[in-house]
Each structure stands twice: as C-alpha cells, then as structure tokens.
Computed example of a mutant assay.
Amino acid sequence: MSGLHLIKLCVGVDSVAELVAWNAQHEGRESGHTTRMTPKRNDELLDGGSLYWVIKGQIACRQRLLELRPMRGEDGVSRCRLVLDGTIVPVVPRPYRAFQGWRYLEAKDAPPDLEESSGAVAAMPEEMKRELAALGLI
C-alpha cells in the first residue's frame, strides 16, 4: 500500500453503512468526490493511496484513489475530481477532529483495515465500534 493517502470529512453521512448504501444507489456512475484544491503529490497518492473518510468524528473507512482529475466548475473555479474505487473498506475506527477540505495522511498514521484486525471487532455493530474507539479501547 502507498505511503501517502488523503483524509476528508464525509459530510451528511452518519455511518459506513449509509455511505455504502449511497454508493449502491449510484452504481454504474463513476465513484468520486469533487474538491476545491488539487493535491500536488499525485504520483505518491496514485501509487496505491486511498481517500480515508471521517464520519461523525472518526476515521471510519477508505476508498482507493484511482485518478486525480483537475477540472473547472461551471462557476469558473478550479476544482479536482478525486476518482475513487467503488469498494468501501471499513477501517479500525479512530477519533479525528473536524477540519475543512482534505489533508495528506501518511501511511504510518492511517488505521488498518477492519478485516486485518480482530474478527471480533469487525463483527461488532458500527455504533459499538465508534463508542469503543472514542474510549480508546480499540
């Protein structure tokens, strides 16, 4: 996996399950997110990097970055389309404070995928994982 990722708030989504359901409703369309700023470290990000989503104050899941596509919006403002793999991978929840835009996330700071962690944790309901992570127990 890459040494560099992006992290971004997933505004308007309350759970990984809700994000998965939203993606399923839009199946057949390109999966992605449009943001104002274009990352400068493209080669590092596209070498296996992911976009980690912060949901309700915790890093909750990730999607692999496939392409960074600079574009101009209808309003003439430069933007960047983050083209993502449609697969949403839950990660071990980790508290993360709110911020605007996106940030780089070094691999050493990224939480592991849930499937790589204990099977018992992966099987827990999302709300329980969120509470345990907030308490620093997972």
Rank of each mutant, 00 (worst) to 15 (best):
P39Q: 00
Q58S: 10
S50Q: 04
W53F: 14
S15Y: 03
A24T: 14
I55Y: 03
C61F: 01
R62V: 04
H26T: 12
C10R: 02
T34G: 03
C61S: 09
A60F: 02
L66V: 08
R62Q: 06
T38V: 15
G49W: 00
R62D: 00
K56D: 05
V11C: 04
T38E: 06
T38C: 15
R41Q: 10
D47L: 05
A60N: 03
A24H: 13
S31L: 02
V13Y: 11
M37S: 12
C10D: 01
R62F: 02
L19A: 12
C61R: 00
G32Q: 03
S31N: 12
G28A: 09
L45S: 06
R41W: 03
K56H: 11
N23I: 02
E30L: 15
T38S: 11
S15Q: 05
A17H: 08
Q58L: 08
G32T: 01
T35S: 11
L46G: 09
L46V: 13
S31P: 15
R62W: 05
E18G: 11
A17E: 01
G48N: 01
R64H: 09
W22A: 12
N23S: 11
A17R: 07
W22Y: 13
V11D: 05
W22R: 12
V13E: 00
S50F: 15
C61I: 06
L19I: 08
A60C: 13
N42H: 15
L65C: 06
E18R: 10
C10T: 09
L19N: 03
V20G: 04
G12L: 02
C61G: 07
G32Y: 00
R41V: 06
E27C: 10
N23A: 13
I55T: 01
D43V: 14
R41C: 02
L51M: 11
I59D: 00
K56F: 06
L46H: 10
M37E: 06
R29C: 08
Q25F: 15
V13N: 01
E30K: 12
G57P: 08
H26M: 13
E18M: 05
V54D: 07
Q25T: 15
Q63G: 04
E30W: 10
V16H: 03
A60W: 00
D14R: 15
L51H: 13
K56S: 12
Y52F: 13
H26K: 11
T38W: 03
A60L: 04
Q25R: 14
D43S: 14
K40F: 14
D14C: 02
E30M: 09
M37N: 08
D43E: 05
V11W: 09
S31E: 00
A60Y: 01
A60K: 07
Q25D: 13
K56V: 05
L65F: 10
Q63D: 02
